[in-house]
């Protein structure tokens, strides 16, 4: 099966606290104890003090051209609260931990992450509680996100515009 991979992604801006937190020895140790052997960072515009770990293979990249594929090849995603990322991961039915950036003012994306966590599709935490969230292992038991009915909106719009509905 190869290495079990963790994908840490911060989106198009930066979230250095998340990168720092996952790079800590104690967190990497926890990841290793959970069976993960490869951590892929996507750091955006942030700094990456590239570091090494004896048991875990670590890789850094700024962006990924094919984001969906990167998620597909991962076994756990640790992400910022971006709506696009959340949806992509949920649609692929992968375990997801969303880490909230407390330094952002008026970050309405938190709303979405918390709602999705309440519904049981993912786990939500802050950089400080990430280690405990990993240790709890609750992120492995998540509800599968249902696929939407793609015709829902077009039927609605046809009705609004007065088109005949077949």
């Amino acid at each position: 099966m190869g290495a079990k991979k963790v994908f840490v992604t911060v989106g198009t801006t930066k979230f250095d606290k998340l990168i720092e937190e996952v790079s800590k020895d104690e967190v990497l140790e926890v990841l290793h104890s959970l069976g993960y052997t490869f951590v892929q960072f996507q750091v955006g515009t942030g700094d990456s003090n590239e570091r090494k770990h004896p048991k875990i293979h670590i890789k850094y990249d700024r962006y990924f051209e094919n984001f969906a594929q990167e998620i597909e090849s991962s076994d756990l995603i640790i992400s910022h609260a971006g709506a696009g990322t959340c949806l992509e991961v949920l649609k692929q039915h992968k375990p997801l931990i969303v880490v909230i950036n407390e330094d952002l003012m008026d970050n309405h994306q938190i709303e979405l992450a918390q709602q999705l966590a309440k519904d049981g599709y993912l786990q939500c935490c802050t950089p400080r509680t990430l280690k405990d969230t990993l240790l709890e292992r609750k992120f492995l038991q998540f509800k599968q996100y249902p696929n939407p009915d793609p015709r829902l909106f077009s039927r609605y719009l046809d009705k609004c515009m007065g088109f005949e509905i077949k």
């Binding site: 709506a83 949806l87 309405h108 994306q109 709303e111 979405l112 918390q114 709602q115």
Partner: peptide
């Protein structure tokens, strides 16, 4: 309204 908006309006 955006999927992100669960509690407040944009």
């Amino acid at each position: 309204e955006s999927f992100c908006r669960t509690e407040t309006f944009s």
